[in-house]
């Protein structure tokens, strides 16, 4: 597969069983994301955006079709292979930050590094770099409860980039923020794309967020309906 393509979703279907009936959320969906692209995904609630992100992040397996990230067909990996793969190759940014409330900003960002064979000094250096990138060098020892929503989301982004993954997926990263904080987070994501050459896939309901993406896809009833180049 071409080195230029970072994510390739190939004729993927995904259905969930609810009781006896089976609901098809994604049906035969195909999608390619070139390396370094900032892709926006929009669509009504329940259209399957999170489901698609979960497949790209290897958090769930497609019912049919295949998902490639880089040179790896992740839809064929086992659960623990996927876990190890995610630590090194993928950063996930959540709408509600999902930081561990008992840990400081520093310790939250350090979490994924605990899974890698790094010395304490190497971990420290990577954590400080990541927190510096998101502009929180002065909040290392604050706990999530002591940070604003925007600051929490920056910690969330620092945690997503601390292992230096090639791809970052974000599920409504500004969904819970006021306009000003949202703007800052979007600037930060753009920087990650332009300066660190990360591939970003972002789900959003927010038109302003969508306008920052290189390319915008609409998902409706499990299918891509319209493509807009910015």
């Amino acid at each position: 597969m071409s080195a230029e393509i970072c994510v390739k979703v190939d004729h993927v279907s995904k259905s969930f069983r609810r009781g006896s009936e089976s609901i098809e959320v994604l049906s035969g969906l195909s999608l390619q994301v070139p390396r370094g692209e900032y892709l926006g995904l929009m669509g009504p609630s329940g259209s399957g955006k999170t489901t698609l992100l979960n497949l790209i992040a290897g958090l769930d397996q497609p019912t049919a079709g295949s998902v490639w990230v880089g040179d790896t067909e992740i839809s064929h990996l086992s659960e623990s292979q996927l876990a190890a793969w995610r630590t090194r190759n993928l950063g996930f940014v959540f709408q509600f930050y999902h930081l561990l409330p008992v840990l400081t900003a520093y310790a939250n960002v350090e979490l994924p590094l605990l899974l890698l064979p790094l010395s304490a000094a190497q971990r420290k250096q990577q954590v400080l770099t990541a927190l510096d990138i998101v502009g929180l060098s002065d909040r290392l020892h604050h706990r999530p409860g002591q940070l604003s929503g925007g600051q929490c989301q920056r910690v969330g982004i620092a945690r997503a980039i601390v292992t230096d993954p090639a791809i970052i997926v974000a599920d409504e990263p500004t969904g819970d923020l006021d306009a000003k904080s949202a703007e800052e987070i979007l600037n930060l994501l753009c920087e990650l794309r332009t300066q660190l050459k990360k591939t970003i896939v972002m789900v959003t309901h927010d038109p302003r967020a969508a306008s920052r993406a290189d390319r915008l896809l609409h998902l409706e009833k499990g299918k891509l309906v319209e493509q807009v180049e910015n």
Binding site: F94, P112, L115
Partner: peptide
């Protein structure tokens, strides 16, 4: 529950 799910997203294996 959510926290464990987040840890999994970060790459924690079930055993961990």
């Amino acid at each position: 529950q959510t926290e464990f799910a987040v840890l999994k997203v970060l790459g924690f294996r079930p055993g961990q």
